[in-house]
Design a protein around this nucleic acid. Structure first.
Length: 151
DNA sequence: GCCAACGTTGGC
DNA sequence: GCCAACGTTGGC
């Protein structure tokens, strides 16, 4: 899951017991949350549009997809007047902090790994929620370990 | 701040 | 259903 740390960082996630991952307004990203993310699933938290771009830590899904409340809030920047309360257009999962890498595992380092070449993240995908295969998960965790980023 | 690439919108 | 125009994303 991508986030701009100036908006909501891994450290912000650490401060709350759980966080509804709201504001996702892309259908494909929504569908991943709705269809493919389940309680206990692990998630990489990725910092984008910032100084240290890359994987910042780990989270866990703690609530399955439910309507994203911000779509019905006229004061929210995520307000969607076209969404019908009887049939909400946008959903989100809740995630909880698991761990923070000692340092961000840089995007540039991910690009050096042939095993990760097919990741949407490395291929101009602008999806803010995107899948990670079991193999890719392992490669990234091994990388984080070998870079001394894990406790 | 730039700009390429992408997703969405809306006229036809 | 096509596709041009537009707005957004996100690395650099």
């Amino acid at each position: 899951m991508k986030t701009e740390p100036s908006e909501f960082s891994i450290d912000d996630l650490h401060k709350v017991s759980s966080e509804p991952w709201d504001g996702i307004r892309n259908y494909q990203a929504r569908n991943f949350m709705r269809d493919d993310m389940h309680c206990k699933d692990r998630v990489f938290i990725y910092h984008s549009s910032c100084k240290h771009i890359g994987v910042a830590g780990l989270a866990e899904v703690v609530a399955e997809a439910h309507p994203d409340a911000s779509q019905f809030d006229p004061h929210s920047k995520y307000h969607d007047p076209k969404s019908d309360p009887e049939d909400p257009r946008w959903v989100c999962v809740d995630v909880a902090f698991v761990s923070r890498f000692r340092d961000v595992l840089p995007l540039s380092r991910l690009r050096e790994e042939p095993a990760l070449a097919d990741m949407p993240l490395l291929n101009k995908s602008r999806l803010s929620v995107q899948p990670v295969s079991a193999d890719q998960w392992r490669v990234i965790m091994d990388l984080a370990r070998s870079e001394g980023l894990l406790d």
